[in-house]
């Protein structure tokens, strides 16, 4: 078994991986700053202000008479949970997006499948991180940067890594999905991807209907 031992010695973590591991461990070890509790004295005016804002928004939305049809263009977004199952994202419902680590080179990011019954092209913009196209079993990952255009039904991958392959520490990022028919925008939605505070490998997503 000497040849086995000699061969296995070549399977090791390279220096780049080790540096990346150390960096991510140092980041994950840093405790999240505690939110300063609001004192009881300040709580009442804050609550009153919040109530006023909510009432103002509610009143403004009730007074609107020019409300058009839902601006969704039949957009249907599927995310993949940790067990690999595809789940349709519903507006304002937080959904676990499964796990992804920045050095997980076997998967180029968190997959999002975006379909639309009406659009003929879909533009996706990521506030942070990068977007990529990938069709297994082909190993080639096409990096799209922060802006990608896909056909309805295609899957796009979002990664928290920057274009320079550097870890971007953002607790959340907004992904904007815009549906086009020809050159005309017919629908728009936003997904907020949040890092799980307890386990930075896990993400959740919320879909917002614009």
């Amino acid at each position: 078994m000497n040849r086995y031992v000699e061969g296995m010695k070549e399977i090791k973590a390279d220096e780049e991986l080790k540096s990346s591991l150390i960096q991510s461990l140092q980041q994950s070890r840093t405790p999240q700053p505690r939110k300063k509790p609001i004192s009881k004295k300040a709580a009442l005016p804050v609550a009153a202000a919040c109530l006023l804002v909510v009432l103002a928004v509610f009143a403004a939305s009730s007074l609107r008479t020019d409300r058009g049809p839902a601006f969704s263009a039949g957009l249907v977004i599927h995310a993949y949970a940790d067990d690999g199952s595809a789940v349709e994202m519903k507006p304002n419902v937080e959904l676990p997006l499964g796990n992804y680590s920045p050095i997980m080179s076997s998967v180029p990011g968190l997959p999002l499948q975006i379909g639309s019954s009406e659009a003929d092209s879909i533009s996706v913009l990521a506030e942070h991180g990068t977007l990529a196209e990938w069709s297994p079993p082909a190993s080639k990952v096409i990096n799209k940067g922060s802006n990608a255009s896909i056909k309805p039904g295609e899957t796009l991958y979002w990664s928290p890594m920057s274009e320079a392959s550097e870890w971007e520490e953002n607790p959340s990022t907004l992904i904007t999905v815009i549906a086009y028919k020809g050159k005309k925008e017919i629908g728009r939605r936003q997904i907020e991807v949040r890092v799980n505070e307890d386990n930075p490998l896990y993400y959740t997503g919320v879909l917002f209907e614009n």
Partner: peptide, 15 residues
């Protein structure tokens, strides 16, 4: 690639 993922996961668990 999968071994690298496991590496990261193990260290995060230790921390």
């Amino acid at each position: 690639a999968d071994a690298q993922d496991i590496c990261q996961e193990v260290f995060l668990k230790v921390v």
